[in-house]
Nucleic acid binder design. Sequence first.
DNA 1: TGTACATCAGTGAACGCGCGTTCACTGATGTAC
DNA 2: TGTACATCAGTGAACGCGCGTTCACTGATGTAC
Lengths: 237, 237
Amino acid sequence: MAAGQEGPRARYREQTRSEIKDTALRQLAESGAGALALTRVAKEMGLSGPALYRYFAGRDDLLSALIRDAYDDAAAAVADAAAGAEEAGQNPRARLHALGGAYRTWAAAEPHRYLLIQGAPVPGYVAPDDTRDRARAVLGPFLPLFTDGSPGASVSALVTEMEAWLAADAGVAEWVARYVSDTRRSAYGLAGAVLVWAQLHGSVGLETAGQFTRMGHRGDTLLAAQLDLLADAFTLD
Amino acid sequence: MAAGQEGPRARYREQTRSEIKDTALRQLAESGAGALALTRVAKEMGLSGPALYRYFAGRDDLLSALIRDAYDDAAAAVADAAAGAEEAGQNPRARLHALGGAYRTWAAAEPHRYLLIQGAPVPGYVAPDDTRDRARAVLGPFLPLFTDGSPGASVSALVTEMEAWLAADAGVAEWVARYVSDTRRSAYGLAGAVLVWAQLHGSVGLETAGQFTRMGHRGDTLLAAQLDLLADAFTLD
DNA sequence: TGTACATCAGTGAACGCGCGTTCACTGATGTAC
DNA sequence: TGTACATCAGTGAACGCGCGTTCACTGATGTAC
């Protein structure tokens, strides 16, 4: 078989891998996080348990694949929103709402996948190495939103910590540089991104954990308020 | 046995119940959330598995007891901080930091207990009815902090939703009334409390999930920034 | 103060369950000549 | 175009594990007289 050319077997193989992941996600959605069981996935697909070992090295390997996919999907949702906001020529505050809203929409539509990447660590499972890079890909488009305004007193301590972090960690500096051209404003972008991350996790995390069901507010209103607080602190607009 | 008077058996019984809960918490701390196993708890205590059924009706009963205790502990930590702030005559912004900091300190010291009450729902476990009341007890002391200032434009939509909620739900109105005397300002307090809840969950939740380990900032700096954003929005001080 | 009885903590065996994973194998499918 | 071979998807049996929970029981401890 020539390199780059894939026979029908390879195609079928990839298709079955996808079907396994889809089935696993459906079961995760129904039975709750941490309930990923290879044998149950196999049974639902009409296969025997050991058959799945043709496609994944084991339970942890399947879990890792699901986590990678979830990060990539979330990153794509945010990147799409960023591209749309760019095209529409929106101001930073509107972009913040567009990006944050896209993230929340993705998470609310598939809470089990959100829990996979942000929830409590699954017992006995060790996250793969590339997790950090994928998390950064999600947050990247938020970085340039915070470089135009000037951060207020409420976030100055955090900005100081970000400056120290940038100076000490070449990896994070390189990541920020991919999204922020003016290095003098890197710390602003980074502080904003970290805050966005926490704000998002606040409302979206509570919402996906099902804590809003008996409460008299909508998830998007709460998130919008949180993001506006942030925009205020950076005097965006 | 006369009513109200407890013999030595009852005392021993209560003591063993406590020891079971302590052991379960220690294992939860070591093995991660969702890993509560009656038989393992029994083994560590040098007991046989069935012995625990003298003290708890089953696994779910033990889990419910742990959750109740965690809520009560968190509520006590916040209430203590509120009493201390009252005594010191602090202004609302300082009180917000004191209360939020107390909550974070509690959660950071015992992340497994925090995950018990805020983390993803444990598969196959149904939360007891009184959970909502206990969650409200934690947030209650935050309510009066937001009734002095005037909420800005960023939170006005949320305040409107809170007014509707208060009008529609007598239970929540009664809860708010226990902490806020001026009913015209109930919605401010409630909006602030809901935002506090989300802000706390944002940084504390990420911190307890272990997401800060490779990041260049401290959990308390991030939380302080988030709480200051909130104080700004309500023009506290 | 002593004795008979009731209470209750704790045991060990057992049941049934679902799980991850291994192993030797069978049979179909694609491929090289 | 046909045949021999290699590849690989999938099976079924098996192993060992830990789990929640039940049941009939034993023995110690507190209590009533």
